[in-house]
Design a protein around this nucleic acid. Structure first.
Length: 564
DNA sequence: AACTGAACTTAGAAGAGAACGG
DNA sequence: CCGTTCTCTTCTAAGTTCAGTT
């Protein structure tokens, strides 16, 4: 019932939008209950001890809390990394009393084992709870969601995406992040800015506290914000993807991509021309745009050095990230890319390019150091300004959306045969989906794992051989035992290798992650909806519940002859 | 044009829950 | 039925874009 209501008003609001919100306002009425704060720290029982230099030591509450953050991560690779340990220890010391500070001077002498065991036991106990106990917790959670998980925006009850404030903990950056291990501090009501409409019932801060600010800004979509202490950036509480405001935005995004479809050939012709320009900046712009279009590279903003992991996108590529081969494996003008992109995911690719692109790249690299920018006359704002002139609303990321969506549509047309049955149809859909393949990431990672495993295996085999020799010559208990261990190691490793190889051949499986991302963010859902309607395939075969909620606008809107 | 901050989208990791196989 | 595996959900980091300021 709620869903129906939702649809009706949603389509109405589409019709209204132009009249009603031309001033850039996002809503008229907004009411919510504010955020849910992280539960307060519960001190450890006395039998769970911390040891320093072999001796038990009772920590002050604030030092203990931070210690538990580390203890909870003890099994994680992070805690072995130097930067993580250094950052953690520095921030931990800030939470210590002066006495603790003078005693605890070396992280290597800290023993968090009992704490770690205690938390593991707790997790285990939670798993072992009876059905009734679990149900009780579930109901309590449900109650919180009912109270805090929804808001009222312009006469609609909408789900909120993240209504819980991020709990304190240790910062986990991705890749080689210089700030990993730093203490993410606890957020208090005094840090919180509330956004709601004046005429709404304002959320109340917890007893005895106050909000930092209550504002009424209807030019933005967020309900709650605070400033995070690691990077100093602002965090927001916003609505769920199923909400009207997010759905409209998503729809708009795909409409822009469809606009691009109409003029992409013109734009391509233009950048081909620009490869010949007299001006360096125009050539660089044209080559970068070619990469973005052809390889689905991200725009690549410049980043502050030392604040984040060293990753790049198109505009921020450096000379060291590409290699030029006038000829390679029988192909002419091959460019090899090797760099870390978003989330420090490695991008590795070899592609043949037009001679003109190749010559341009040679020119851009001339008399530069490896760490110099490849496109020294270009950045994302220059590029996007140019794109804006080529088409209203065009930015670098539209190319990813456009290319992913158009490929899905083409592949679906090509791969679906009318006579095949329902399961075969779904297989065709998955194949089409797979063809989109924005990134070779998971394959790449798997191959690295396989290579590593092969190496381990051959090393283990060598050891086994020498152990065999030892056992034969010595005939003693010790060498016989050693032989057994080696045998087991080889068996284990070859088992693991086999598993990995099976995974690798199972294409379905290992592109799942990249697939999920493109399904959620790059593929116009109306293409899939239309396909389902055309072939009588249930939409739930393609989209799970969450996805159907997010794409409700498309399910409602697209009929079987929708064309991207 | 360069810089900065704000707002919003995109992303993988981790945790929770459902399904599967012995 | 229970442990394992697969799938979905949640969490929050890491991008892009845009607007305002110098």
């Amino acid at each position: 019932m709620y869903l129906n209501l939702h649809f009706i008003t949603f389509s109405l609001s589409l019709r209204w939008e132009e009249e009603r919100y031309t001033d850039g306002s996002k809503w008229r009425f907004l009411e919510h209950k504010g955020p849910v704060f992280a539960p307060p720290y519960e001190p450890l029982p006395d039998n769970v001890r911390f040891f320093y230099d072999g001796k038990a030591m009772k920590l002050s509450e604030s030092a203990e809390e931070v210690a538990t953050f580390f203890a909870k991560m003890l099994d994680h690779e992070y805690t072995t990394k130097d930067i993580f340990r250094k950052n953690f220890f520095k921030d931990w010391r800030k939470e210590m009393t002066s006495e603790e500070k003078s005693k605890i001077t070396d992280l290597n002498k800290c023993n968090f084992r009992e704490m770690s065991e205690y938390f593991k036991a707790q997790t285990e106990a939670r798993k072992q709870m009876t059905k009734e106990e679990k149900l009780k917790i579930k109901e309590e959670n449900e109650r919180i969601v009912q109270e805090y998980g929804f808001c009222l925006m312009d006469n609609h009850k909408e789900r909120i995406g993240n209504f819980r404030i991020e709990p304190p903990g240790l910062f986990r950056g991705r890749g080689d992040h210089p700030k990993m291990g730093m203490l993410k501090r606890r957020i208090r009501p005094e840090d919180i800015i509330i956004n709601c409409s004046k005429d709404s019932k304002h959320p109340k801060p917890p007893p005895g506290t106050r909000w930092k600010e209550v504002r009424h800004d209807n030019k933005v979509t967020w309900l709650v914000s605070w400033t995070e202490n690691i990077q100093g950036s602002i965090k927001y509480i916003m609505l769920n993807p199923s909400s009207r405001i997010k759905g409209e935005k998503d729809w708009q995004k795909y409409e822009t991509a469809r606009q691009l479809k109409k003029c992409v050939e013109r734009i391509r012709a233009q950048y081909h021309e620009d490869w010949k320009s007299k001006e360096m900046r125009i050539r660089q712009r044209a080559v970068a745009l070619y990469f973005i279009d052809k390889l689905a590279l991200r725009a690549g903003n410049e980043k502050e050095e030392g604040e984040t992991a060293d990753t790049v996108g198109c505009c921020s590529l450096r000379v060291e990230h590409i290699k030029l081969y006038p000829e390679l494996d029988g192909q002419d003008y091959v460019v090899e890319f090797d760099f870390l992109g978003k989330d420090s995911i490695r991008y590795y690719n070899k592609i043949p390019v037009e001679k003109r692109v190749f010559k341009n790249l040679q020119l851009f690299m001339e008399s530069k150091q490896p760490e110099d920018d490849l496109f020294d006359r270009l950045n994302t704002s220059i590029l996007n300004k140019h794109l804006q002139e080529l088409m209203e609303g065009l930015t670098a990321k539209v190319f990813r959306t456009y290319n992913a969506s158009i490929t899905l549509q083409q592949q679906l047309k090509q791969l679906t045969s009318p006579e095949e049955n329902a399961p075969a149809k779904i297989l065709s859909y998955n194949r089409a989906n797979r063809a989109v393949n924005l990134t070779k990431k998971s394959m790449q990672n798997l191959q690295t794992k396989i290579d590593a495993k092969k190496q381990q295996l051959s090393a283990a085999k060598k050891e086994l051989k020498s152990a065999k020799v030892d056992a034969k010559t010595m005939h003693d208990e010790k060498s016989r035992k050693a032989l057994e261990t080696k045998k087991k190691a080889v068996a284990r490793l070859s088992d693991q290798l086999m598993k990995l190889e099976v995974q690798a051949t199972d294409r379905e499986e290992n592109k799942q992650i990249a697939l999920g991302t493109s399904k959620l963010n790059y593929l116009d859902p109306r293409i899939s909806v239309a396909w389902c309607k055309k072939w009588g395939v249930g939409i739930e075969k393609i989209y799970n519940k969450t996805q159907r909620e997010k794409f409700a606008w498309a399910i409602d809107m697209a009929d079987e002859d929708f064309e991207f």
